[in-house]
């Protein structure tokens, strides 16, 4: 239990450094440390599949981010702030903060899973009948590849579309016009 607090505080400190540092490369490295500590945290929260995926995704994302920031000039932001923009930012942050505090009051205490308080939650069915129905010992795998396979299909579609868009944006030459 204590380890979760330590990791969470580490993530918050790394996030503050990543937000406030001037150097973009060190900000990117701090984001990477948030991701790896998050992966450790998933491991302590009994989610090994997510921990593995998080490490893989983190390495790829770090490579992409470093590709964007390395050998670029440092951009120094001039400090002229507009009044309207500042007011809108403060109002937006305050509204989301108040809404979040309302939600925090209604949550159950940490450690009591929310699906145990619903009598016929879908997770209970997955846990009790997942092995018989799908033959997968790992319940998470049986959920993503059998019970909710359409979600995974949609995920593959979104991933393919975003990679297609990224490669279209980064294309060096414009397509030669036909005719």
């Amino acid at each position: 239990m204590l380890i979760l607090y330590v990791l969470m505080l580490f993530m918050i400190i790394a996030a503050v450094i990543a937000v406030e540092t001037r150097n973009l490369l060190s900000a990117v490295i701090c984001v990477g440390s948030i991701g790896f500590v998050g992966s450790l945290m998933f491991l302590f929260l009994c989610a090994p599949d997510i921990a593995i995926t998080q490490i893989v995704v983190e390495v790829l994302g770090l490579i992409i981010l470093i590709r964007a920031t390395i050998s670029r000039d440092l951009t120094f932001i001039s400090g002229d702030k507009e009044f309207f923009g500042v007011v809108v930012s403060i109002v937006l942050i305050a509204v989301i903060f108040l809404a979040g505090m309302k939600v925090l009051d209604t949550l159950p205490a940490f450690g009591t899973a929310i699906f145990t308080q619903v009598p016929d939650a879908a997770s209970q069915v997955y846990l009790s009948e997942g092995l018989q129905r799908t033959g997968a010992a790992n319940i998470v795998t049986s959920v993503i590849l059998d019970f909710r396979a359409y979600d995974t299909l949609g995920e593959a579609t979104v991933l393919f579309t975003s990679i297609l868009g990224a490669s279209a944006i980064l294309r060096k030459k414009s397509r030669r016009r036909l005719g």
Partner: peptide
């Protein structure tokens, strides 16, 4: 622990890589 959020967060992590 609850397997359903784990499965959906797995989807979300991969999609976040694409959007990044």
């Amino acid at each position: 622990v609850d397997p359903l959020p784990q499965a959906l967060v797995l989807t979300s992590i991969v999609i976040s890589l694409g959007s990044l």
